[in-house]
Amino acid sequence: MSGRRRTIFFLVMLLAVLVLLTGQVRGEDRRSLGPLGTGVLTALAPLQTVMARVADSLSRSWQLYTEIGRLRVENARLREEVQRLTREVTRLRETAQAARRLETLLAFKLQTPYRVVAARVVGRDPASWFATIVVDRGSADGVVRNSAVVTAEGAVGRVIETTPFTARVLLLSDPRSAVGVILQHSREIGVVEGNGQGDLQIKYLSRASAVPPGDIVITSGQGGVFPRGIVVGRLQTLHAAASGAVFREGTVRAAVDLGRLEEVLILLPEGGPRH
């Protein structure tokens, strides 16, 4: 095509487009397809539909892929959060249990006529030869030797040595421990001693006594350590007296779980300030 023809051809097309554009702009909707335009779009519609479906499918796959990555990160974060919350729950449960124990101790402390100080168990005899515990109250708090140690459930033992800030307590289950007791219903008197194996024995019961099993054993107040009326335990078994023996013996189940002490109350001597 010669240069002149090309220019004329271009100018003709340009004019046609300008006419078309002017007609469109002046129209009501500013867009008028006409039958040819409508036909072209109709013919292209199936292709557009297929391509759109392919694009939608790819888009969904991509979203799924990115979602998996995001979910993986979210999963790891949530697992960590679960572990953190589990630790928190465990800690809170522990705190709640301690609160319940302390609440019980406080209730006992408020209703007892004695001067008491609460103490936390901070140590046990590591060799387990002796049934002793160490608590975090000492002479600075008014604790003296032979102070009675109790919990809300019952008697625990007595203080055998003190430092300014700690005290060692001899538990009832220690062989060296002996507490004067009385059986609540039968009113028989006896002595409860530890047998060194975590159990309590009651001795010096009258041979002729008719003691029902399960009778509650309480302190008699004799001996100068425990005041009268503190629960020691419950009579479990009563052995038959040996031939010629004057007294009978039995086993007592301690009211307090001496192996799981965490907080105790120490009864202080009269005359000092109430804690």
Binding site: M13, V17, L18, L20, L21, L33, L41, L44
Partner: peptide
Amino acid sequence: LGVGLLQDLLFGGSLGLFALSKL
């Protein structure tokens, strides 16, 4: 021109807009 008209049809504007520029 052809591509411009096709774009005008597919994109929803007035016919001749992209046809003019592409021409």
